[in-house]
Every structure is written in C-alpha cells, then in structure tokens.
Design a protein around this nucleic acid. Sequence first.
DNA 1: ACCGAGGTGAACAGTCATGTTCGGAACGGT
DNA 2: ACCGTTCCGAACATGACTGTTCACCTCGGT
Lengths: 205, 205
Amino acid sequence: MTVHLGALSRSRRATKRPLLDVVAEVLLAQPGASLAEVAEFAGISRTTLHKHYATRDELVRAVGQRATEIWEQAVDRVADEPGTKAGLRQLLAAMIESGPQLTFLWRNPALDEDNELTRRYIDVENRCLAVLDRARKEGVLAATTPDWWLLQTLYALVYTAAESIQFGKLAPLDAPDLALSTLLNGLGAPATGAGSGKPDKGESE
Amino acid sequence: MTVHLGALSRSRRATKRPLLDVVAEVLLAQPGASLAEVAEFAGISRTTLHKHYATRDELVRAVGQRATEIWEQAVDRVADEPGTKAGLRQLLAAMIESGPQLTFLWRNPALDEDNELTRRYIDVENRCLAVLDRARKEGVLAATTPDWWLLQTLYALVYTAAESIQFGKLAPLDAPDLALSTLLNGLGAPATGAGSGKPDKGESE
DNA sequence: ACCGAGGTGAACAGTCATGTTCGGAACGGT
DNA sequence: ACCGTTCCGAACATGACTGTTCACCTCGGT
C-alpha cells in the first residue's frame, strides 16, 4: 500500500542535507513508511540506514532528539531578547523554520517513552514559556491567558504557518509576521479607529 | 511494540458508542495500531470487526466518511446563522465537539485517494468558508485575511481546543468562547483604557 | 423448541517489514 | 599497490499483521 509521497520524492532525493531532516519529512508525510522507503528518499541503501540506526525505534528516537535539539537552538537564539513584539517575532520565525522537525516531535506520542527526550522536551518548553512570560509582563501578551493555552496556540500557529509554507500558499518571509499578527490580534476586524489605522464600518455584534 | 493507549483504554472500552468513533480515537492516538488492538478497544473481536469492514483500508475510509458526515452536519447546523460572533461561536462549538473525527480526517493524507471523500471534503470546506465569508462581510472578521489562512487558523484552533479538552486542561463548555476569542482577538494584551482605542506605551517594533 | 442473526475463538496461509549477514565495489590516504 | 572505511546489493530467518474460514455459542423472536 504505497501512498505517494508526491512532491517530496524527486526534488529532495540525493541532496546532501542532514539525513535526519529527510527522515523527519518522510516520516511526517507517511508515518507508516517502511525503512526501505525512508532509505530511498534519503538517497541511501537500507543496509546503510541500518548501519547508522540499528532499529526503526532508534531511528525515530534519533529524529526526535534532533528535533528537540533544533528547538532548543531556536529558543536559545531568542532567549536574550526582551519580551517585545520583535522578540516574539523572532521566536516564531525560528520555530516556523523548523516546522517539520517540531511537527514530527509534537505528533509522535511514542517519543514519550524516551525519558531523556521527555526531560529535554519539558525543559525547552519551559524556556519557551519563559520567553512568552516576559512578553506578558511587558504588556505585549494578555496577562490572563493560561500558560497551556498560550503555548498550545503558539504551537498551532507555528504548525499552520509551516504547513502553509510547505504547500506553497505562504511565502516564508511573510510567515513570521502573519503568525505574530494572528497570535496577538487574531483575525477579527480591527477595532474602528484603533492604533493600526483602519477606518472601518461600524461595530457589529 | 505495543505503545500504551493510556487514558483511552479502560474508560472508553465496552461502552456502546458508535464503533467508528472509537476507531477514530484509537487510530488517532496510535496510527499504527493493529486491527487486533483496534477491535479490543472497541470492545469487539477482531473477527467481528473484519465482518463489518473487510479490510483495514475499508475501515479507515469508513472512519473518514463518518468524520466528513459529522463535519457536514456541524456546518449545516450553523448554515443559516447570520455571520455574527454568535454564529461563529456555534460553528466553533460544533467543530470542537467533533474534534477527534475532524483531526483524524485532517491527518490522514491517505484518505485523499478516495475520490468521493475528497469531493465531499472540498464541498464541506467551501460551505465552511461561506460561513466565514458572511462573518467577514458583517465586519466580524478582518476583510483582508486570505481564505486559506482563515480556514487553516480555524482548523488549528479547533484542533487545539479539542486536544486541550481531551487532556483535561480545558472545560468543554469553556472551549467555544476561548477559541472564538482567540480567533477574533488573539492573545495580545487588550487595548488599554478606551473601549477599543490603543493609546499604548511606546510601540516596540 | 426452533431458528436465524450476530458474535466469538481458534486456526491457517500469505504477505510484508525487519534485522542481520556476507561478499564485493568504490574511494581516499599512505 | 595496499588498506581501511564506507557503501552497496542480495539473500535469509523471523516475526507481525492481515484476511479468511469454520465450528460454536447466545440471544431474541416465533
């Protein structure tokens, strides 16, 4: 039951990107892909793949580890930023850029089995939250939003933006701004006469 | 390689809910679950499961069909609503309620193979969009947001809310309002002082 | 008491992914 | 020219899941 991996197939193959990145994408598009398929799309033989990662489980965990690593670096890059809109924008940009890896991480409950990975996950999530908290204290984010909802919404927007980019609907350079604006202001009609200048028709509830 | 389905297992088992609903949840938590596992969590024998749906593919497609059906009904229920906040709230409520089914639908690229299902999917998505469009014309939603971003954001919020409910973080009755508020206003700090104006501290970007 | 519908457990053949082994090719360094 | 490393293709044993069959049970209706 080979489901086509469509757009992925030819373009990415045989390029010299980090192996685990390719694996993450394949396994994301086709969670049930066989190791033979994964190897093919990575441009190596199944034997070689097995030599690097003895079992499928080991491979999946390696991808998870790398995804976490990438996330950690993304958060680190904005750790010193003040809690401003610009800081948030940078966090979003960094996370959206790593969209596939993060999505892989978020979508694989099986990774929870790995204790060290779970520890690092919780850790980086907390650091992520710390950034958001700073923005909250700066008055950029609403003070009343619960932590978990803030985080989940952030994840959701990162995921959506990354997916839109992959589908070609969204220009990579537009993504951070769009996501940030949606996160902060939502998609409701701007308040009439408000700061962002949009003289509109009357309020309409 | 049995990964535990944790919270799902005992509580739901053997209850008399529609079979396909249980299947959707199991297959969502554990996409690689064997039919034996699926049957067990549905509280029936594998033989019986096979009698209803001859092959795994057929089962998956049936779940997809049902998910689409549920979505159609949810949209139908608000099709006559005017494009007000209340109307949007109802759409969100209906969709969040069907969270697991919709998530299953959104996450299974394999379902695209089914032409009829794809047709119905596109159709209900368009009707969904029509509801949003009406809200846009009423000035509830920003006029400038592209259709696809609006839809994707809606999906993201529905998914996030449903997941939060499943994790016990969010009370089902609170979900629609939280999602609606996030969709319309985002999570930024509310405008200070005036009703909707924004005489704020220095802009930070 | 009979009967049919729907459910069950046991068993079986077929298929496929997995993990492993091995002989050999290619390549770079010495 | 030699050697170690790395990759490769082929082949194999194993195990898991699948789909199917069959004999049996257990109800509810007649």
